[in-house]
Design a binder for these strands. Structure first.
Lengths: 226, 226
DNA sequence: CACAAAAAAATGGCATGCCATTTTCCGGGT
DNA sequence: ACCCGGAAAATGGCATGCCATTTTTTTGTG
């Protein structure tokens, strides 16, 4: 391997970003629960780096909305309430709807073919009951549409919101009827793609995302009550 | 004022955020031009703080998209190309359209009255040719709608994007016919508000923002050619 | 003079130490 | 037992210094 410094999407370039990636991961996976305190010196010892990169990483997480930093009082993992999921998905739905619109408008045969492939694979997983594979393909499809919209601003904004939205592992806990509905909505989107109907694609996708937000909100609500 | 915990407008919090605010201001005002290098030690001497808070501030600006930091090569003010304005406003338009929709859905007599007040004041300024006051009121109205949507995620996302969108002072350079069109679009929005027609409000506002983005793109293009 | 190599300067990344503020804990008074 | 006040510990904010990498300047050679 040559020492290519031209690979842009490198993570772990600087220590601070490496630390930020680790913390993001822990928060998303739930190893760090809401309201847990994050203590610079403790992390510093655990990760064997000094406090400086840790502090920089914490600033980044605060900008992402994953933690809250109070002056002279340190950092807390921010809460994730059901209602917040709804608010997040309200925005995410708008962004993905815009992406779906733009993708439809600039659709090429090649992109449509890739989408058909991904969609078909997802349907196979679904019909075969491979739930995990199904959810993975679902995510791949959503990301593919976002990536294909050719708007870096949208891509970055979406990614940042999804970091927060993905907190917890609730996605796999979905009622069967909602799952069927989601598959139907994906099929509707493909139909809009095939017809080149950008308006329809946008509406279908926005509805789909809003439903997802509502479902996640329900799951979170039931979990927090239990 | 409500005791909102998300009042970020507090000044003098931590030194790093203070520095970040100063730099944001300079970049937005154009004192720091695109591709200008930002040197930690120079700023450190100028602002009479150590390099540590400066570094933290730079990380924040990078997260905002205002600068680019390369490993071991320091920070550059990122460029602001016409096409980027278009991409930014594509996203901003979606967000403001969503805000307009939500505001309409939850409209109260009090909010409508405030909107009418602001709108009327803006019209007065416009008819009297007080261009600066007009633009200020314009901004106030846009912000008021965003703030009234009751979605902190949307508010924060919008604010972050607007920091980038407002770079330069091109807003005041607008062709008279576009200005008339903008006023008409504001009037259309008020009409949708009065009718409680959320769908119409959303569409009107999205169109308005997209037009604004196109206008700014044109201005930036003509400037960069000159 | 052109060009390349090497030295020097610039610059950023990180570790560490000191100080300010906050939090925790403990003892005395009621 | 309870509350209050102050000391001690915890914790974060910032300054400074050292090292690695990059950039610039200098120098040597054809």
């Amino acid at each position: 391997m040559s020492k290519g410094p031209d690979t842009k999407s490198e993570h772990a370039t600087t220590g601070a970003e490496h630390v930020a990636a680790i913390l993001r991961d822990r928060i998303v996976k739930g190893e760090l629960a809401p309201l847990d305190r994050i203590v610079e010196r403790r992390l510093s010892a655990e990760l064997m780096v000094s406090r400086t990169p840790i502090r920089e990483a914490l600033k980044l997480l605060e900008a992402d909305g994953l933690i809250e930093i109070n002056l002279h009082r340190g950092a807390l993992v921010s809460e994730y309430r059901p209602e917040e999921a709804l608010l997040l998905f309200d925005v995410i739905a708008s962004l993905e709807a815009l992406a779906a619109r733009r993708v439809t408008e600039t659709m090429t045969a090649d992109v449509l073919r890739q989408l058909e492939d991904l969609h078909g694979t997802m349907l196979d997983h679904h019909r075969a009951g491979r739930t995990n594979d199904y959810f993975d393909m679902n995510t791949v499809i959503h990301d593919f549409i976002i990536k294909s919209c050719a708007n870096p601003v949208l891509i970055a904004t979406h990614q940042r919101l999804m970091i927060r939205a993905r907190r917890g592992r609730f996605l796999a806990i979905m009622k069967p009827e909602r799952l069927e509905q989601a598959v139907t909505e994906h099929e509707d989107l493909m139909q809009a793609f095939r017809n080149g109907n950008a308006q329809q694609a946008s509406e279908v996708w926005e509805t789909h995302l809003r439903h997802t937000g509502e479902t996640i909100t329900e799951v979170l609500t039931s979990q927090s009550v239990s």
